Amino acid sequence: MVDVVDNVTRSRMMSGIRGRDTKPEILIRSLLHRHGFRFRLYVHDLPGKPDIVLPRYHAVVFVHGCFWHGHDCPLFKWPRSRPEFWREKIKRNQENDNRAREALLASGWRVGVVWECVLRGAGKNIEGVAQSLADWLRSDTPLIEVRE
């Protein structure tokens, strides 16, 4: 299938996608705040620059977009244009995610990952996601992945 917009327009559209303060991140932050959790954002001296850092719980939360991190879910579809570029890009993102997760766990941080797909679409249990995160933060489990 041919792209419906020209290369210049597609490039402009893709460059406009934010890497921080995305709708899923803001939703997770709001849910955590409503449950009484206080946090810091984008601590750059931690591996992977986590989206949310909860120092009191020695925990970090990454909010992953399904496309950019290659999640195996209905939201993710391989692009048809420049497939070799996108396969390499997404593979590199996944490798960086794994390295950051391992480095954080090795240094004693607890790691949570929330996937975009659990937050989008009709019938999603947003409060269930919030409760899962709250339960995890109050436990001593080192890793949680909230996915569809």
Rank of each mutant, 00 (worst) to 15 (best):
M1G: 14
M1Q: 07
V2Y: 08
V4R: 13
V5N: 10
V5A: 02
D6K: 00
N7Y: 12
N7W: 06
V8A: 11
T9G: 00
T9D: 05
T9W: 00
R10V: 00
R10K: 09
R12Y: 10
M13K: 06
M14N: 04
G16D: 01
G16E: 02
I17W: 04
R18V: 04
R18M: 07
G19M: 11
G19W: 13
G19E: 10
R20W: 11
R20M: 11
R20F: 06
K23E: 08
P24D: 02
P24A: 06
I26K: 14
L27Q: 11
R29Y: 08
S30C: 07
S30G: 14
L31D: 09
L32F: 06
R34L: 06
H35F: 14
H35R: 15
H35T: 09
H35E: 14
G36W: 14
F37M: 11
F37R: 14
R38F: 12
R40I: 02
R40K: 14
Y42K: 07
Y42H: 15
H44M: 04
H44E: 15
K49N: 15
P50Q: 09
D51N: 12
P55A: 06
P55H: 09
Y57F: 12
Y57T: 06
H58T: 10
A59P: 00
V60A: 03
F62P: 07
V63C: 01
V63N: 00
H64M: 02
C66R: 08
C66V: 05
W68R: 07
W68T: 02
H69C: 03
G70N: 10
P74C: 10
P74K: 13
P74W: 07
L75N: 11
L75M: 10
L75R: 14
W78V: 03
R80D: 15
S81D: 08
E84Q: 10
F85P: 03
F85I: 04
W86N: 07
W86I: 12
R87I: 07
N93E: 01
Q94G: 10
Q94D: 11
E95D: 12
N96W: 09
N96E: 15
D97C: 02
N98P: 00
A100K: 05
A100D: 04
R101Y: 01
L104H: 04
L104G: 02
L105I: 04
G108N: 04
G108M: 03
W109N: 00
R110M: 08
R110D: 00
V111H: 04
V111Q: 00
V111I: 01
V113I: 12
V113Y: 02
E116A: 12
G121F: 13
A122N: 08
A122L: 13
A122R: 15
K124N: 05
K124H: 03
N125E: 05
N125G: 02
I126H: 07
E127A: 12
V129Q: 08
V129P: 06
L133N: 01
A134F: 08
L137P: 06
L137D: 02
R138W: 07
S139W: 03
S139C: 13
D140W: 00
P142A: 13
P142V: 02
I144E: 03
I144F: 11
R147P: 03
R147H: 09
E148S: 15
